[in-house]
Structure formats: C-alpha cells, structure tokens
Write a protein that binds this DNA or RNA. Structure first.
Length: 493
RNA sequence: GGCCCCAUCGUCUAGCGGUCUAGGAUGUUGCCCUUUCAAGGCAAAGACACGGGUUCGAGUCCCGUUGGGGCUACCA
C-alpha cells in the first residue's frame, strides 16, 4: 500500500490539511505501507519560494514521517510538480493524439462572454465546447497562427460515471452535467486534474486519500484513468474539518473565533507558537472523524497506528472543538516525563523575554505540570521564578478574604520568625509550622497560606506556597515577606 | 440555481434490526477535596431533524422533506 500527502505550498500547514495528511499516514502505517510527500506547485500565480521549508517544518513538528519526498528523494522523483512538466506535457498531448482531449484556443475574454450570456439565459455557466467542434481545417488554421491554447478533456456527452469510494460506496455522476475541464494550461503547466492522475500513477499510489471537496471532480479523474488505460487506485474521500459553529470549512482567510471572541489558530505554526503539543494536536485530529474504540479518547499515534482503519471513519464532516483540544493538551502535558516537560517549557519562557536557568526550570516544572493547559500558560503561572527583579504584588491581592491590610500584616509578621526559625525548609516542615500557626492566630489555612503565597510570588494565581518558597529559598522568601509587610504598613499609614 | 456528500446530547462520538427507559468524552452547572489556580472524585441537565414506508420489532434498512457542508476557475 502507498498513500501520499500532496499539499500546495502556500506557507505553513493548514490544520484541515494536516488532518487529511494524518489519516493518510495512519492508513499507510497501519497497513505497513509507504507514505509519500509530493508538492503540488502548479499554480504559478501562488508561487512562494519559502513556503516549502515552512511546510516541512510544520509537518516534521507533528511527528508524521514520509518515505519519499522532495527533501529526501526516492525512486519516483522528482516529488515537486513544477519539476515534472515533461510528464504532464507528454501525457496531455497523448490524450489529444488519442482523441480523449482537444486543443482549445478560446481567450479568457471569450470564456467570460460565454458565461455571461449563459447566466443571462439562466443556464448553468461553463464552457460551450466551441473548440471541441472545430473542423480539421479550422484547427489547422489556428495551429498555423501559433495561437496559445489549453488542452481540454473530451467529457462524454452522455452516460454516467461511477466513482467507487472506499468510505461511501459507489457515487454516480451524469456525464452531460460535467465540463470539458482544462488539463494543461496555456503556460504549459498542468492543472490539478492532469497532474494528480499522472503523478499518482507514476508514483504507484495505491490509495488516493484526499478531502471530500474533491469528490465532485473525481468522475473526471476516473475517466482519465480509463482514457490512459491505467489501473485505478482506491478512492478514499475524507470528511472535512468545519468551523466550531459547523458553518463552513476551517479557513485562514476568515479565521474562526471561539465563543469568547478569541481567534482560533488555523495554521500549524500558530499551534506551535500557542504552546500546543504535537502529540495533543494529532490525538485531537485523529479523534475527530475517527475513533479509537473502547471509549478511549487519549492515545498516542503509535497506538492509533495499530488500530487505524477505514470502517471507523465517520463519513460526515465535523466541527472543530477548541475545548477538547485544550483538554487533550493538558492530558498530554500531564503524561510527559517531568524532565521532558521542563525541556519544552524553555522556549515559551524565553520567548516571553525571560532568562531560564536550567536547574530552576527543573524545579519549577513539577509544580506547573498539573496546572497547564498550554505550555505558554507557564509564563503567567510561574514566570516570576525567572524574573531578575521581584515584582511585588498588588495590595488588593495581598489582603486576604475577610481580612484588612492591618490584620494581613499582623499575620505575616507573626509568620516571619516562625519560618525564620526553621532549619529544614522543606514544604512538609513549613506546612507543619504554618498549620500550627493558624491555630495560634485564629486564621484559616486559606488566609495564612494564601497571604504568604501572594507575598512571595507577587501574584494572585500561582504555584503552591511551600513548594514555591522552598525553591526561592528561605532568605529570599523572608525578604519578600518583609517587603509585603512594608507594603501593608504603608497602606495602613 | 445545478450536481454531489452528510445528518445521535451545544460539540466530538459509541451504536452496524431486538441487549437503547440511547453509552462515553468535552463543555456547562452543583457538591466534595483543597492553600490560589489547576488536577482529582461524585452528581445533574443535555440527542436519535421531520414525515412516510419495510418489519413481529427501526437510532439502526428504503423513500421523501428539511437542514448543513462541498463543488460549480487556465486555484488546489
């Protein structure tokens, strides 16, 4: 079995395309087959020289691997369509010579004109097949004049074409409703329709996996295989990933928003920057439109490879669920070995402008592991650990529930010498001492521990009190508590 | 408009004629735990789009309606 992913390089990787790629990859890997990467860059108007490197970066990040491709070569190369023009030209002209296609000399103006007239007459728009009906003389005349032309397919005027689809069965199309599609453009480049058939055949693709937006043009592709006399691959039209509201496919041109109005990332690089784990993203994507079985939602791609197959693919399109991705991301963060989490936390912290000391990072990682939904959340939660200068808390955060500045101050003043007297500054020891102090002072754990926590972290939401103080060290913790006391003093005055 | 695809809780899904007073997850709400935030535990609300058939029996099969999506380029 051989499947392929054939994106057109327009920048990063669209999440909907990643989902298609993922299904193709899982399918091939499950059956012990090969997965091929091919670049479909036949649209010269959209050419972007940096796009390919970005695409590969995104794809590598997701963990998908390919056996043949533009960057690694292979026996069926080249894997970039713009480098395969001779194939398309050869086979395009072969179709003309064997009367499956014809040269069309119509200008864009005429095409527009024909459409306008058809629409005015309330007919379906489309090419009127003017050049299909040229006499031999007329044809010779146009050729002699050296006019630019495109090659169009001679769609059968009657009958039906059946597309056998692996997940929805036979889909039947009426031939007379279909266009004489352009196969080879006037610039000598192929359209998708010609290129995909030639390449999939030459590259020996056994299963064509692609999103179901291609289903309407699949009969043309079937007919092309017939015309060439090539063996047809198995067609697998995958469901589409829709916007969170289920209206329209995910698109980077009109980026969707969640119900809080925040933009939802569409490109893989946006997910990388937002602090998502590749294993969470792929888990999420595999889990929408396909299911693992056994009611399991959290799984690795290695586990998915073992089980993946077409029968459990849902033929319906599905809406993107941000909440579920965020939950899965948290699950995968918690599943990481803590040293690995530490390693991945470095980048978001550094990107936030912080200087990250390795030993400190190792200490902080276990404290944030169960608290993070995204890696980037570490900046707000524990960024204070890496500040060169301590930023004291806001007064209103420092004053505890049902207390005022004076009573909060007195509480911290009482805690200070007790903490100072501790030889062993372990969290357990601190807890024991502070717990005892709550009884003496007549305050709750929440008030005392919370007051200390805000004092040493500088923020209302943070890592837990005693573990934090242990990392900060006794001296630094006491210094910060002292600062808090002064802050409360000045407010009382 | 035409053609094609699709249709179970808000969302992702299980269900492949009787085991369905429809299961899981997420999200929401409540309670518990608790040192903030999380995580964890428990609980609640929440769906077979509608109408016809077929059948002893339909969420499951067929048809229609409705709804949603896709395509309708010398873009992919």
């Amino acid at each position: 079995m051989r499947t392929r992913f054939a994106p057109s390089p327009t920048g990063s990787l669209h999440i909907g395309n990643l989902r298609s790629a993922l299904f193709s990859w899982l399918f091939a890997r499950h059956h012990g087959g090969q997965f091929i990467l091919r670049v479909e860059d036949t649209d010269q108007k959209r050419y972007d020289p940096t796009a390919f490197a970005t695409l590969v970066e995104a794809l590598r990040w997701t963990g998908l691997d390919w056996d043949e491709g533009p960057d690694i070569g292979g026996p069926h190369g080249p894997y970039v369509q713009s480098e395969r023009l001779e194939h398309y030209q050869k086979w395009g002209h072969w179709l003309v010579e064997n009367s499956h296609a014809y040269r069309c000399y119509c200008t864009e103006n005429r095409l527009e004109q024909v459409n306008k007239e058809k629409i005015a007459r309330k007919e379906a728009p489309g090419y009127d097949r003017h050049c299909r009906n040229l006499s031999a003389d007329e044809r010779a005349q146009q050729d002699a004049a050296g006019l630019p032309y495109v090659i169009r397919f001679k769609m059968p005027l009657e009958g039906q074409t059946v597309v056998p689809d692996a997940i929805r069965g036979d889909v039947v199309f009426e031939n007379n409703l279909m266009q004489d599609a352009v196969l080879l453009k006037s610039d000598g480049f192929p359209t998708y329709h010609l290129a995909v058939i030639v390449d999939d055949h030459l590259m020996e693709i056994s299963h064509v996996t692609r999103s179901n937006e291609w289903l309407p043009s699949a009969p043309l592709h079937v007919l092309l295989y017939h015309a060439f006399g090539w063996e047809m691959p198995v067609w697998v039209h995958l469901p589409l990933l829709l916007n969170p509201d289920g209206k329209g496919k995910m698109s980077k041109r009109k980026p969707p928003r969640d119900r809080h109005g925040n933009l939802i990332p569409v490109m893989v690089h946006d997910y990388m920057r937002a602090g998502y784990l590749p294993e969470a993203l792929t888990n999420f994507l595999a889990n929408t439109g396909w299911n693992f079985g056994d009611d399991r939602e959290v799984f690795t791609m290695a586990e998915a490879v073992e089980r993946f197959d077409l029968p459990r693919l849902n033929p319906a399109n599905s809406a993107y669920t941000q909440e579920k991705l965020d939950w899965l991301n948290g699950e995968h963060i918690r599943a990481l070995p803590v040293e690995e989490l530490a390693r991945r936390l470095r980048k978001p912290l550094e990107d936030a402008g912080l200087t990250v000391e390795e030993s400190r990072l190792q200490q902080v990682a276990p404290l944030v592991q169960i608290r993070l939904k995204k890696l980037n959340d570490v900046v707000d939660m524990a960024g204070f650990f890496f500040h060169t200068e301590f930023v004291p808390p806001a007064l209103e955060d420092l004053v505890q529930k049902k207390m005022d500045a004076a009573s909060t101050r007195n509480m911290l003043v009482a805690a200070y010498p007790v903490l100072e007297a501790l030889d062993n500054f372990s969290p357990a020891n601190q807890l024991e001492a502070m717990d005892a102090l709550t009884g003496v002072l007549g305050v709750s754990r929440s008030q005392l521990f919370g007051g200390l926590r805000v004092a040493v972290t500088g923020q209302a939401v943070s890592t837990p009190t005693f573990e934090t103080m242990e990392i900060l060290g006794k001296a630094e913790s006491l210094r910060r508590i002292q600062m808090a006391i002064q802050l409360l003093d000045s407010s009382a005055a």
